[in-house]
């Protein structure tokens, strides 16, 4: 029982981690909580659905959905956030919430407000079958795929951030925007790249969740976004490895909390973790201490 809970919690945690890196990267470069990130996650699932219903094969549909989500993320920054870079923080935060609500309702208008199943015929039949069975623990193929994709994406992301020029530019921006631009870094282009990267990963998380639970609905980004944000805070906002760790810890804590403490308060675990971490250890598990910039 406990082992099964751990397996399920780990799966959920990897999903949160994938979304959380998007929050944490954007926060790292422009110090904005991108509330609309949860909606990108939701759009990933729905765009895949639309591409599949156009008759595209699954891998191509997923790839296109990720690209489209990345484009939406970049557009979101250019249209909504970029004009407010010099404005007070409050203005950008309110805009982010506004965009989140806007995208959510747009999805409701386009795809309807009722939950939709992931198209069964597009998925290979073995996905839902158990892959590994130990005494009383079952791991499905879908879970294995989530592990593999999530780990692959995270390793890839780490390589991008630590080994490439654009990754170096992202880290430079996170440290000091003015100095970075003086070194010849095109600040806006790097910010766009950050949004694209985070959005693509968030979209992938949405796609895999809709396959895993076989459902998608326009408001799914709300709760997942909040929880992923809690994960980012737990890991230390601005820290990419922290977001990954925070996601996994939160996923396991939530599953165990629901299983052993109180299942109606399942969603409360994320809120409680978030509030407690912010109050007692605002720098999170792996983050640097943050001070308010005047």
């Amino acid at each position: 029982m406990l082992e099964q809970q751990l397996v399920n919690g780990f799966t959920l945690g990897l999903i949160y981690a994938l979304i959380a890196v998007g929050y944490t990267m954007v926060y790292g470069v422009i110090e904005l909580i991108n509330f609309a990130h949860g909606e990108i996650y939701m759009l990933g699932a729905f765009l895949t659905l639309s591409f599949i219903s156009m008759g595209l094969p699954l891998p191509l549909a997923v790839l296109l959905a990720m690209l489209a989500a990345a484009a939406i993320g970049v557009l979101l920054d250019i249209i909504a956030y970029r004009p407010l870079r010099e404005a007070p923080r409050l203005a950008a935060l309110i805009t982010a919430i506004g965009m989140s609500i806007f995208l959510q309702n747009l999805a409701m208008i386009i795809w309807g407000s009722r939950p939709m199943p992931f198209p069964k015929q597009a998925l290979p039949a073995f996905f839902s079958e158990p892959a590994l069975t130990f005494s009383d623990v079952t791991i499905s193929w879908m879970q294995i795929i989530i592990y593999a994709v999530a780990l692959l994406l995270m390793v890839g992301l780490n390589l991008i951030i630590t080994r490439t020029r654009v990754g170096t530019a992202m880290r430079a921006l996170a440290q000091n925007q003015t100095a970075a631009s003086l070194m010849g870094i095109n600040v806006n282009r790097v910010i766009s790249f950050t949004f694209a990267l985070g959005s693509a990963m968030g979209a992938m998380a949405g796609i895999m969740v809709s396959m895993y639970y076989n459902t998608m609905y326009p408001t799914m980004g709300y709760l997942a976004g909040v929880k992923a944000f809690a994960a980012a805070v737990l890991g230390g906002i601005g820290s990419v490895p922290g977001a990954m760790l925070g996601g996994v810890v939160l996923g396991i804590a939530e599953t165990l909390g629901a299983g052993y403490v109180s299942s109606p308060y399942r969603d409360g675990v994320a809120y409680a973790v978030m509030i407690l971490v912010i109050i007692f250890r605002p720098s999170g598990l792996l983050g640097r201490a943050v001070t308010e910039k005047a």
Binding site: I94, T95, F102, Q104
Partner: peptide, 12 residues
């Protein structure tokens, strides 16, 4: 949808 748009446009 309208409310979200109002907030974005006003802030901008």
């Amino acid at each position: 949808l309208a409310y979200g748009l109002i907030m974005v446009v006003i802030m901008r």
